[in-house]
Amino acid sequence: MSAILPPSERLWWKHPLDRVEGTWILIALVWCLTMFAMMVGWHVYGRQNLSTETYRTTPEQFTKKTQAMVDKHTVRTETDQKIPVVAPPPGSDVYLIARLWAFWPILELEKDKTYRLHLTAMDYNHGFSLQPANINIQVVPGYEHVVTVTPNKSGVYSIVCNEFCGINHHTMVSRLYVK
């Protein structure tokens, strides 16, 4: 029962290992380094890397910028609450507010065009979960996260809040259109 007894050989660290262990350690090490290289390599060759561009912000500052975009590029409104649908020009900065318990406004983007999407939360932590593409980003209050996005399929997407944010968390869901 030696795993629960002191090692019987006092100089246990001098004993060579068996071939099974040596071979496996080598294989496992190669695999671990491969995975590490993959993660680094995707930053060079891959097209899906999460931006780290972040600024501190306040609800007032962010609302102001969002309102300016809404005033300029609203094309229609939706639902009883008249949520503006905004179609900003490709390449521009687009703003999305996450707050209890809604996203505002609704964005309308163009396929294969690139946008700088600014995300922040007005109150609690929220989640930006784009469905059915299944892209998930944390939205943290006080921080403005700028993510460069390039939609690759047109259609109607949903944005689901997937960070628990209180009793009406399940109603916090919005749309995003890609033309």
């Binding site: 891959g46 097209r47 899906q48 890397n49 999460l50 931006s51 690139t114 784009l130 593409a133 299944n134 892209i135 993510v147 460069t148 996005v149 390039t150 939609p151 690759n152």
Partner: peptide, 9 residues
């Protein structure tokens, strides 16, 4: 699966 989603950078 990841390579098929939107471009993000």
């Amino acid at each position: 699966y990841l390579s098929q989603v939107w471009g993000l950078s």
